[in-house]
Design a protein around this nucleic acid. Structure first.
Lengths: 342, 342
DNA sequence: AGGTGCTACTGAACCGGTTTAGTAAGAGTT
DNA sequence: AACTCTTACTAAACCGGTTCAGTAGCACCT
């Protein structure tokens, strides 16, 4: 079996308690003894037993992430793998692990959090995809589970937030289109109960209105290719059809772009298109997709770090603001047709 | 605090040991007493402490998944989220959790497995993306960690395998193209150290050769959009350029298709294209992508179940064979041009 | 010299289960 | 009646840490 703290105690000629104090850097042992204990521990190759420590300290040494999305849609979202990789880079260094849960069915989400707490699997969770009136906040308060949120939720939240502004990228995209001469700029947004979907929509509307344009061409979709296509079809069926469409993610933009081309429209000559996320394939589309490039890796590693700090009582209470995603202009945007149809 | 086994013992007027026997369905208690213990446990709302159980039984009640991929590429791969969701559906029912690790850097993979074992985080792992001479097999044997593999590895492996045949879909795709009249069918494959990449290539080559065609137009890429584009560029620069390209995944096919269109080629009139995975967006491309639809959800849930059976000593030793992914024919494939250029 | 306070440590309890060793009661055997 | 065997249970050890209560030894104060 592995070497335990008792083995170290015996070898060093002290009690178990002394070893524990020495190893945890607590007071109660002389420097002299501490050195001796540490060196015998090292000689014997001692490493702490996570399980024993979990039991006696009532900690899990793990963080949780509950992803509540349809796996089909999740599969096309490039955000999560990078985000998770970011979380990992922080956790691995500090002896923590990530427990991942996918809540596919409605209602499974709450059950997942309850189970994580009840089994004591995790010491805290990272909340992504914040929603309006997010029910997870009261739930976690009830459960007493620490958390960080990605972006500050719209309702009061006692949890630290790690923020990456959605609005700047969208505003820049819309302004870019306005500067090119577009006046009928549509937006295909994500589900509006998501805070980020909502703030992207608001950014789109605000930017238009600042230039005296009306923000009327809006369709809500679900971030999936199917609804991206449908929304696009509805937009170009309109009497006063848009000359540019700002999509809330690259998947919908890709699907929309394909649909438009299929309808005989040329991109960007007949209609301009922008995405969000700067997915790896965005630059290889035909034409390459103008998009907004976020940094999920940084977001993940920062969120994990903030949560760990919080657990260690080292959080200063301020939200962490990360650099806003930037607009990346490519071939899918150009000036509107000189003589727009109808 | 939560109610413990001692509380139940006291309430039922028996010893801790008796409660443990009763709750675990072991012999040593009369039916009468067992019923009484179970009902008082229920009345008190007792649930086992995962941590205490982990310590005394030396089990983690968790499975691990180590994903060794560049997060950038991982982000575009629709396989993992669905696969993980599948794993979850099995685990959640049985009180297990999933510990996910992303090994970004080279060498981080082995360290991840060692850490999982060393900390006792998991009772077993699921191995995906099997490689030729896969170093994980001897590693896990050394570490004594149970595992399941996705598909049977090329080297001898004592671990059960859950298999989903790669070859049938590719063979059908190639045969479909041959039936349409193509004779110069290229393949853009994944990294050839992956077993699945290799078997897809072999299926492509075998099917061509069965029809007396030469399997010469092969390029290895990394499943990413960039290399998919590059490979496509090289193929159409050739003297005897292909009239059809079979890609090893949808991402490369999508990137390739865009590149081809950008070069003024019409799909499928000038050149046919097929993908693999049947990504959600595949059907919304322009033209819709002929692809091969695997079932990662089923694969995940089955792999988890087989591993749990294995841990419970209930594995019968046979590999589990899942239905092979099927070819889905869409607009990106058609008969070759009547008078192929050069 | 006696009291106080601090340091450095020990021994034991504790976290909440599982598991082993031991035992009392009853049935069966001869 | 004495012996063995089984059943049903208890007490205690154990997993490997953390933490609390107690104590010996020493310095300092008055």
């Amino acid at each position: 079996m592995a070497v335990t703290i008792s083995d170290v105690a015996r070898a060093a000629g002290v009690s178990k308690g002394a070893v524990s104090y020495a190893l945890n850097g607590q007071t109660g042992v002389s420097d002299e003894t501490r050195r001796r204990i540490l060196s015998t521990a090292k000689d014997l190759g001692w490493t702490p037993s996570l399980r024993a420590r979990s039991l006696s300290s009532s900690k899990a040494y793990a963080l949780g992430l509950v992803v509540a999305r349809n796996p089909k849609l999740l599969g096309t979202d490039p955000f999560f793998p990078s985000f998770i990789a970011g979380i990992e880079t922080t956790l691995a260094d500090q002896g923590f692990s990530l427990v991942l849960t996918v809540a596919a069915r409605q209602g499974a989400e709450e059950a997942s959090y309850r189970r994580l707490v009840h089994e004591g699997r995790v010491d805290g969770v990272i909340l992504s995809d914040m929603r309006a009136e997010d029910s997870r906040i009261p739930l976690l308060l009830e459960l007493g589970l620490p958390a960080v949120t990605l972006n500050r939720p719209s309702t009061p939240s006692p949890f630290p937030a790690v923020c990456m502004d959605d609005t700047e990228g969208i505003s820049n995209a819309v302004q870019h289109l306005i500067d090119l001469g577009h006046t009928r700029i549509a937006h295909v947004g994500g589900p509006q109960h998501y805070v980020h979907s909502r703030s992207r929509r608001d950014a789109w509307a605000d930017t238009l209105e600042r230039s005296g344009l009306e923000a009327e061409l809006f369709i809500e979709a679900d971030f999936g290719a199917q609804q991206g296509t449908d929304a696009t079809a509805r937009l170009i069926d309109m009497d006063r059809k848009p000359t540019a469409i700002v999509y809330a993610n690259d998947i919908m933009a890709t699907a929309g772009q394909s649909y438009l081309q299929q309808q005989g429209l040329s991109i960007p000559d007949d209609i301009s298109v922008t995405g969000y996320d700067n997915t790896e394939f965005a630059q290889y589309l035909n034409p390459a997709l103008t998009s907004i490039g976020s940094d999920p890796l940084l977001w993940g590693s920062t969120a994990a770090q903030v949560l760990l700090n919080q657990l260690g009582g080292k959080h200063d209470g301020d939200d962490v603001i990360l650099p806003a995603p930037q607009l990346i202009i490519r071939g899918s945007t150009a000036k509107p047709p000189a003589n727009p149809s109808k």
